[in-house]
Design a protein around this nucleic acid. Structure first.
Length: 569
RNA sequence: UGCGGGGUGGAGCAGUUGGCAGCUCGCGAGGCUCAUAACCUCGAGGUCGCAGGUUCGAGUCCUGCCCCCGCUACCA
């Protein structure tokens, strides 16, 4: 397959909190596996991510922590970047929509995007009544108003919906409304905003989404749940959505001649996906010295754009964002939006618990920061991939994590490395023995390796990461089966050359496994190269021919590849 | 009410165009000893939510029903 050009993005984390295992399982780990694989294949890839720093929630966190929005997003952004790094999730750029490095370019590109859409007349300017907190000096998002439900008279109803009777409502209908920010009684004020008429894109979106049901060329089909959900929304008709907000924190609405635009910013969901573009531009500026080179990725159909997101982002990435791109007109549409469901935590009693800031304590091991203090990243990458919520929700369970590390990663994959390497050390002078005369079983195992590259690569190409990992483990298992069937420990005494053949074949297998595991377990793959004494440079190319050892090659010092973890009683 | 997802051996899940019900873990019994008591073999265990229908044949298609979870926040 020829070299391809791909731009891969992972959802922008909102920079008012830390990352937990659910974030990682949802968008970032699958994206990282995909990108690592593409790079091993030799494709030209950019991997883009960064923090989503704008919006009202940041300002509220800032108020709560008695600091500035800039401080909040700067602090959490740095924390998130460190967490990603610790897990081996390596972006080409980790931008930030309000980070010092990116904000200027981000604002410029976002405003250009808005203006182009505005020029085409695709916004409707509309004045509506909204609740205003005079004490806080800001309009209140629906969710920040609480009062008595006009339908069931329940006391704790929110401005958009009553938790008790489940009915949704207009916040103006709430009885005795209160601002949840200051506790004061809000007043009704008029405000003007720009609404994107999503309805005008329904037909085009529908055709586009329907075309994603089948794979075309080597572009895989989208997940069915994603398409059903998005198409269901279209069927129910897409509303006008306000693309501006009354707020001081964000990208200013670029209409200086319109007094109604004063003091307003772009809706955070309008500028966030544009962050993918502006971070790409910032990276191009850094790498190529020309920010405009981003067009090579975003406006050239020869490049393929893949977005990895969690399920809550489906509406924005499968509908709103493509509609924005259609509206603006000069960008290409994403090739794929890869959506994972949520990951929950399984409680001791088997109950499904949501991963949430409010429920999890600060020192919960499910925060990445905490997790990395106790464990290596690869076991987590393994476990999260093996339970990846690709089709339905999954659940994290600490005991299961430990058990699967020991019973699968250590016992199967790690053990195959260890028994092969220690055997070579003990009986073959720590060198790769001659292949010798190959019997059918030996041929079969060697022939299975290129097939595994093909198969696992195909699974990754199609975003079936869980299946790809299971396949990898099956390959390792077949190695253990081969080892047992050949009984080199017995061969050694009767047929030393045959024993050499066995170990030669096993070494070829673990060498191939090193390359095959690299997208999922990058740290272990690096360590495996050291154990095999193979120079890292170019060693992980996704190519069975280059993942081969020559007879006589000296090996490194044997050492355990994956550590066993203690399971508390 | 509506929309979307799901209900498969003890647990967690796969099941593409309908064709003898699979995988991992766990469990039981053997084997092996190179290996982090790791590995290998065999086995037990399922009326595929319920009831109908189409078909030579359905977990897989159609109809009706039941149950669980989202569609609201911190959030992927």
């Amino acid at each position: 397959m020829a070299q391809r050009r791909l731009l891969v993005t992972a959802a922008l984390p909102y920079s008012n909190g830390r990352l937990h295992v659910g974030h990682i399982a949802g968008a970032y780990l699958p994206a990282d596996i995909y990108v690592r694989y593409l790079r091993q294949r030799g494709d030209d890839v950019r991997f883009i991510c960064g923090s989503d720093d704008n919006g009202v929630a940041i300002t509220i966190t800032a108020a709560k922590e008695k600091t500035t929005p800039q401080d909040v997003c700067g602090r959490y952004r740095a924390r998130q970047e460190a967490d990603f790094d610790g897990l081996g999730i390596r972006f080409d750029i980790y931008g930030g929509t309000h980070s010092p490095e990116c904000v200027e370019l981000h604002n410029r590109i976002s405003q250009g995007f808005f203006l182009e859409t505005h020029k085409k007349g695709l916004f409707t300017k509309k004045t509506t009544k909204q609740l205003y907190d005079a004490q806080a000096g800001k309009f209140l998002p629906d969710r920040y108003v609480q009062g008595t439900c006009p339908f069931c008279k329940h006391g704790g109803a929110y401005g958009d919906q009553c938790e008790d009777c489940g009915r949704s409502m207009d916040p103006l209908a709430l009885i005795e409304p209160r601002s949840t920010i200051t506790g004061s009684t809000p007043e009704v004020r008029e405000t003007t905003h720009w609404y994107l008429r999503l309805g005008e894109f329904e037909a085009r979106l529908k055709v586009w989404l329907e075309s994603k049901r089948e794979s075309s060329g080597d572009e895989p089909a989208w997940r069915e749940a994603t398409l059903n959900f998005a198409l269901g929304q279209i069927k129910a008709s897409l509303p006008e959505r306000a693309m501006t907000r009354d707020l001081e924190w964000g990208v200013p609405v670029p209409l200086p001649d319109d007094p109604d635009a004063a003091g307003k910013v772009l809706y955070v969901w309008f500028d966030a996906p544009i962050g993918y573009v502006s971070f790409t531009a910032r990276y191009c500026e850094r790498a190529d010295g020309d920010w405009k080179a981003y067009e090579r990725w975003w406006k050239d159909p020869a490049c393929r754009i893949i977005h990895f997101i969690g399920e809550d982002n489906t509406v924005f990435h499968a509908l709103t964002w493509p509609a924005m791109l259609m509206a603006e007109g000069s960008f290409q549409l994403p090739s794929a939006v890869v959506v994972n469901a949520f990951l929950n935590e399984r409680g001791p009693d088997g109950a499904m618990l949501k991963l949430s800031k409010s429920r999890m304590g600060d020192d919960s091991a499910l925060w990445i920061e905490q997790f990395l203090k106790g464990y290596d990243p690869d076991p987590l990458r393994y476990y999260l991939t093996s339970i990846a919520p690709e089709n339905q929700r999954g659940a994290f369970e600490m005991r299961e994590f430990l058990a699967r590390n020991n019973d699968e990663l250590v016992a199967n994959l790690g053990n195959l490395f260890n028994r092969t390497l220690t055997f070579a050390k003990k009986y073959f002078d720590n060198k790769v023995p001659e292949a010798g005369t190959l019997a059918d079983v030996d041929h079969e195992l060697l022939a299975a390796l290129p097939a595994a590259f093909e198969r696992i690569g195909h699974q990754i190409e199609h975003f079936h990461f869980k299946a790809a990992l299971a396949d990898l483990m099956q390959v390792a298992r077949s190695g253990n089966q081969y080892f047992d069937a050949k009984q080199p420990w017995a061969q050694r005494k009767t047929d030393l050359a045959g024993c050499g053949t066995t170990i030669h074949v096993c070494l070829q297998m673990i060498r191939a496994l090193t390359t095959l595991m690299a997208p999922f377990l990058p740290f272990s793959a690096t360590k495996a190269l050291a154990l095999l004494n193979v120079p890292a440079d170019g060693a992980l190319a996704w190519d069975p021919a280059s993942a081969r050892l020559t007879a006589g090659h000296p090996l490194g010092e044997p050492e355990v590849l994956v550590k066993k973890l203690d399971i508390p009683e």
